[in-house]
Write a protein that binds this DNA or RNA. Sequence first.
DNA 1: ATACTTACGCCGATCAGCGAACAAAGTCTG
DNA 2: CAGACTTTGTTCGCTGATCGGCGTAAGTAT
Lengths: 385, 385
Amino acid sequence: MTPAPGSPGDVLTLISAGSATTRSDLARLTGLARSTISQRVDALIERRLVEETESGESTGGRPPRQLRLHTEEHAFAGVDLGATHCRIVLMDMTGVVLAQCEDPLLIGEGPEKVLAHVDGRLDRLLAVAGRPRAALRVIGMGVPGPVEFATGRPNNPPIMPGWNDYPIPDSFPGVAVLVDNDVNVMALGEHRNAFPTARHLLFVKVGTGIGCGIVAEGRLHRGAQGSAGDIGHIRVNGHEESGCRCGNSACLEAVAGGAAVARRLTELGVPAETGADVVALVQAGDTQALRLVREAGRLIGEVLAGLVNFFNPEAIVIGGALSRVHEHLLAGVRETIYRRSLPLATHHLSIVPSRMGVDAAALGAGILAIEHYLSPDNINKIVNA
Amino acid sequence: MTPAPGSPGDVLTLISAGSATTRSDLARLTGLARSTISQRVDALIERRLVEETESGESTGGRPPRQLRLHTEEHAFAGVDLGATHCRIVLMDMTGVVLAQCEDPLLIGEGPEKVLAHVDGRLDRLLAVAGRPRAALRVIGMGVPGPVEFATGRPNNPPIMPGWNDYPIPDSFPGVAVLVDNDVNVMALGEHRNAFPTARHLLFVKVGTGIGCGIVAEGRLHRGAQGSAGDIGHIRVNGHEESGCRCGNSACLEAVAGGAAVARRLTELGVPAETGADVVALVQAGDTQALRLVREAGRLIGEVLAGLVNFFNPEAIVIGGALSRVHEHLLAGVRETIYRRSLPLATHHLSIVPSRMGVDAAALGAGILAIEHYLSPDNINKIVNA
DNA sequence: ATACTTACGCCGATCAGCGAACAAAGTCTG
DNA sequence: CAGACTTTGTTCGCTGATCGGCGTAAGTAT
């Protein structure tokens, strides 16, 4: 059932969102009596979820005691597992990064090895941050493939051999583990950081492949099988000659993904293998690379133009490796979207590069973890326990 | 704020959904004490929202008194305004149709005339159903264009001259009026009738134009500007020669809409003007028409294949005028979707024709009205008043 | 008939939340 | 600088909603 309004969870939500910093604020916002609020806040303080800081500015009367999240005794991890890397951030309850790390790590080594590595790194990060292992409340994890979110099991992931149906949360006993597609957590992070008030947002990751995270009504849309946002295999005009690893041809990913752009560059006599190579060439001023990136942007924009008509988002954020040369990519994207989408849908549409850089997925995964822990339902459970 | 669990509104929701038919059921489902449930039910009965019927079957003890919605004193209207017609259904609180009507009506006559017509028809339908005007609680209305749902004002509708920004609800003082795009209300109706348990559903209307209603998490997704679902102007492969009224070319609507198919038939020497003509030709066994409808299905399927990857729905329902020959249309749609979408997304996907026929929009609009009235928030307001 | 089961109303006990009164801690003013 | 004023926060008795036990109603099984 939905939590009652004014429950401890609601009160904490207001504090964590920054909507209220004092008991008086809370009383005003919730409509509850000041005495009731005091009770609620006391309970939250007793559970070490909230703390009082030195008094704030007086507005003519007694200065209010400021409230804020009690960050010391809680920690949250955001884990970004890529095909060849592992990034982890350790956060406090407010989303501040306490420690982070990054290693090369082949996801193809299989879940046992990879998750053991993660577990070791978590211990190290906790030590660096000076928190006991017990302080780690929730782990959020982004993986490069579809996941059944409710159970944390990868669902026939194409580039994660050995991971199919593997129950990832079981490898971290005693901690809640939320596993999601990497693009989804990036979308979440970008929404919370850059467009917290937008109701509907798309995050497009342009790396080796192309994927999309969907935020609808402020929450992640994962679809019926958790495969929503898989736009890399949408067909684009022309390009029937480009075969895709999925078996079809003319897939967006096969013509505009980092690997595809690299291959085309190679064909033109400019050797490149990966999206990173392409980025390097563009940054070095290679005009062929620049042209192809912009052309990739146009192709991506063509697909996005359709999705803008369909989904009518407020913002589109472009991230991923290729977005490091986002000026050129975005130019192509914008050009096509504004040409092919309906004016009503594009009028108030922001199309912007990602703000979060390479740590986007890890940060988003951490936010996923924190939001789970601070959700009113969970807080009420903790307080009533 | 969210209503408290076990509130009168929650109780009524359980009764109206058929989850509970007795006080004992309610106590079990809500977890509230039997005495509390009795109070709640009494309040609902007093407000004429619920009634008791003759006792039900005993299961070994005293037979429970059955509860059901008190239908006599409430009525709801679903209005379907099309380009050239007006259909209205009058419903009771459970969605049973009490009376209905259908007239030719040109929406281009402007809001005053059209809405006055609707108002007159409502009086007549209420008379037929033997209910006073005061029994009419909410009017749901579907119109052929984008609407700002919160205010009930059409938003630059292309085929509703004179309606832009017109405050439709003001024309029905004393009654709540909910105005939405016609495709949205059709999607809602189809979801509630045919796929009530599906979380995500797409409804595609193939008429003169092509539009799509989106149900996400069981609720309508309207997008940031209320223009979500406008898939008629998504680009399809080839067909650059087909200009569209929107100014672009190769729009789905311009190659696979009813008007487009009719035009192509005419070019082939088979005279046809509208989608209805096309339907008649197919039903008469014209092979050219049949081929073109199937081809239109393939083109629509191509766009839907991309949307299936993106949105990952559980069901796609095809409706609209052309769906009267749905065998042929659906064949083309299915063919393309299964070829171009990802297996994970299509594995549990149902692609089916609309069940609701020509009254789909009116019925959906009525359901929109009823659900608004029976929403926990609204019921709590009524009971506490 | 009698025991048993289930349904439901009544009523005292309980508890969450309210608001008035009070205490605390500052600013403003003569 | 003292006292009035303002705002914050706590204490505590009050109220009203909810609970759960008991009695009664209304059936079935033996």
